[in-house]
Simulated scan of single mutants.
Amino acid sequence: MRPTSAVFRPLSHRVLTGAGVRYARNVDPASHRVLTGVGVRSLKPNHMHTRGILSLKDHVYFSKAEASGAGRNGTVKSFGDSPLELKMSMPKTAGGKGDGQNPEQLFAMGYSSCFLGALQLAAARANKKELAENAKVTANVFLGHPENPDIDGFGLRVEITVDGCPDDAIIAEAHEFCPYSRALKHGAEVTVTKA
């Protein structure tokens, strides 16, 4: 597949200021310098903010899952129409036994499925439904250490590959519409409470 704008489009940078979040279109990620109307201003990495928050006015569905046991080596179960329970395990390459599923597998499965649905919807809206009927979407989710040495633990990188749909505009539209893509691009509301 040829690279498309959906895969390689750069994210816009936003700079957190005292007055809120504003777009900074000319950001050099290496030096964290912003070209402003009065020249170049330097920013420390912890002042960079590359996404905002997409909030919901309502919901049409919600999913509930519960983790218990030894964290990434425990169990997870979902509730609802078709409950699922899985044994979790750190991958062997990350020092685990690899004898169960891991969150990255589940995330990749959800993202690829959701993106395929968005792709087929985008094709139907463009009156080109046949272009995405036999498409396949692969999500590669990478678990690794952040480049920023001030961030401890792991981070994720995602690569989406679309096979069987040659239309770059439809792929780009699917990337804009897919809720997983939106969550990663725009952010999602996350509330942590104590039960």
Rank of each mutant, 00 (worst) to 15 (best):
G52L: 13
K44C: 00
H32W: 04
K97T: 14
S68I: 03
V192P: 01
S63V: 13
H47D: 11
F8N: 11
Q105S: 04
P91Q: 13
M109F: 08
S12G: 10
G18H: 09
C178R: 01
E85K: 12
C165V: 00
K194Q: 12
G20Y: 09
A118E: 02
N46L: 06
A122T: 02
I171A: 01
F107S: 06
R25G: 06
E130K: 09
P166M: 06
R25M: 09
A169S: 14
D168P: 07
M1Q: 05
T138D: 07
V27D: 00
V21I: 14
L43D: 00
K194P: 01
C178K: 02
Q105F: 03
N127W: 05
G18E: 15
A188P: 05
S68H: 13
A124P: 01
G117N: 07
A70H: 09
A183M: 09
G18K: 12
A124G: 00
V76G: 11
Y23D: 11
V38H: 10
E66K: 10
T138M: 09
A70Y: 05
L43I: 00
M48I: 07
E130T: 07
K57D: 15
E133Q: 14
G187L: 10
G117P: 00
S63Q: 12
L184A: 10
S82K: 14
A70L: 08
F177N: 08
L56R: 10
E130F: 04
I53R: 04
T75M: 11
L16Q: 12
H59D: 10
K194N: 12
I170F: 01
R22M: 15
V141D: 02
R182D: 12
K129E: 14
K92M: 13
T93M: 12
D168M: 05
E66R: 13
Q120L: 02
A132W: 03
H145Y: 12
P45M: 05
E130M: 03
S55E: 09
E104M: 04
A132V: 01
I53A: 05
L54I: 03
R41S: 03
G155L: 04
